[in-house]
Write a protein that binds this DNA or RNA. Structure first.
Lengths: 120, 120
DNA sequence: AACGTCCATCGACGTTTGTCAATATTCGGA
DNA sequence: TCCGAATATTGACAAACGTCGATGGACGTT
């Protein structure tokens, strides 16, 4: 009698597993990106960046920032430090005043990274 | 004798205060933006989004995600929930499997918001 | 030299976050 | 109807975070 050949089921097709179609982000890059995003992921810090960006020369001193933010001066300084360490602001002292300035393109760069690195 | 008129010093020029040249972000919008950024500001969640984005049909089930992430299944489910509540992923159950899918344009929209809302 | 102003740092506090083990739930197959 | 597999939820815990008051350091003015 004749035998019928049955196709062997591929292991990949057994369960739900979907194959990847392109490269994924590595844990190191994910850490870097997360660090920058974390620096912005706070309402107070977003407002700080916004006020600096809206100021003459993309620059403002702490005395300009404390009042509209409505938090204590140490807290504002703390947030500014975080934004500096993340590369969004630079600091320059003139007299007793400390001026914080937007790093040109830092925000746009992060914005692009979101689109390009992730959505790919 | 003749009197010389002296110009009155403007109050704004006395100290360091820089005038704003354009609108700043309001506290409510800052809260909204911060909430979305916070959802992405974690290395594990960035990798999850990346893997989903790299998968066939921008879609993957939890069983595809647990192994490459290297964390416990409850932790992965927890992160996926956060990404869903922030509007980056949607969930659809098929059988026992739960498929998470990228929300089209959600990342790009956030990316644009960063550039437009802040940098002005 | 003494004082006042602007800002950074420190220490403390309550809250939020990321993680896990254990358990509950839902669904398909025997 | 019972069992196993995939996923969500709960409870717990340590670490990180946001905030403040108090303090300290640097600078300009008197």
């Amino acid at each position: 009698m004749s035998t019928t050949l049955l196709p062997v089921i591929q292991p990949e097709a057994v369960a739900c597993c979907t194959p990847l179609t392109s490269e994924t982000i590595g844990p190191e890059r994910a850490d870097d990106l997360a660090k920058k995003l974390k620096a912005l992921a706070d309402p107070t810090r977003l407002r700080l960046v916004s006020i600096v960006a809206a100021s003459e020369g993309d620059e403002a001193c702490v005395c300009d920032l404390t009042e509209p933010i409505g938090l204590s001066q140490p807290t504002v300084s703390h947030h500014l430090k975080i934004l500096m360490e993340a590369g969004f602001l630079t600091r320059s002292k003139r007299g007793t005043w400390a001026y914080y300035k937007l790093v040109p393109g830092a925000l746009s760069q992060l914005s692009q990274l979101l689109d390009v690195t992730i959505s790919r």
